[in-house]
């Protein structure tokens, strides 16, 4: 397997999830960056022309126009996608550096932990707002949700396993069932969406 090839000297402290994390940063950071970028472009188009209908406004439920026009879309006073463009670009860069065999010190991992923890918290607040306050879903935003959760999850697992958080390796059970936990997490959110918009899905027929 190609995996054995990558287990050269530095990989000794790489942990079982090192490879996953590196590639997840590149792929997830890249997807998140594209989604945030598109949202920012749409937001600018909407500002320039209030009658502009964003490309992702498909119907009353899947509608980024109504989501983008809410106060929650600029939670910190600036458009949320700005945070996404900045944050995901950093994650993507970190992933590329890791693939290029940069082996960062502990503070670097703690910074990634802080960033992804903020990201996942913010995303869950946005999910809550989108479902129960705004009552509409924004497809690009959902892409951001979908990549932020694994970015946080695998950063946390990696940091637990490598002992960056507690000083010694921990979280073995979570590491062992890493993708099962992630799958449950996704299923829970999909179920919330399905239940919340049930009326709408049923009127489509």
């Amino acid at each position: 397997m190609s995996e054995t090839a990558s287990v050269t000297t530095p990989a000794a402290t790489d942990g079982s999830l090192g490879r996953t994390v590196r590639w997840l940063y590149v792929v997830g950071g890249g997807i998140g960056l594209v989604a945030s970028f598109v949202l920012m472009v749409e937001k600018i188009a909407l500002l320039a022309d209030p009658n502009y209908v964003p490309t992702c406004s498909l119907n009353p439920v899947l509608s980024c126009g109504s989501v983008m026009a809410t106060p929650q879309a600029a939670a910190f006073g600036v458009a949320n996608p700005l945070l996404g463009v900045t944050g995901f670009a950093m994650v993507l860069t970190a992933g590329a550096a890791l693939i290029a065999w940069f082996r960062p010190p502990r503070w670097f991992w703690l910074a990634l932990q802080a960033g992804t923890t903020f990201g996942v918290g913010f995303v869950h607040w946005l999910i809550w707002q989108s479902l129960y306050s705004i009552g509409a879903l924004c497809p690009y935003c959902m892409v951001v949700w979908a990549v932020t959760i694994p970015l946080f999850w695998y950063t946390t697992l990696h940091n637990l396993e490598r002992g960056h958080l507690t000083g010694r390796s921990s979280g073995a059970v979570l590491v062992r069932y890493h993708s099962a936990v992630l799958a449950l997490w996704f299923v829970a959110i999909i179920a919330l969406i399905a239940v919340r918009f049930w009326d709408y899905w049923s009127t489509l027929v």
């Binding site: 079982s16 892409v143 993708s179 299923v187």
Partner: peptide, 28 residues
Amino acid sequence: MPKEKIVAGGRAWPSANVLLTVGVVVVA
């Protein structure tokens, strides 16, 4: 749809995790 399955990256115990993951996804 925000739906994805990360295939197990763990080397030591892939099968239990993969089985559980597949189980969760299939049940869902």
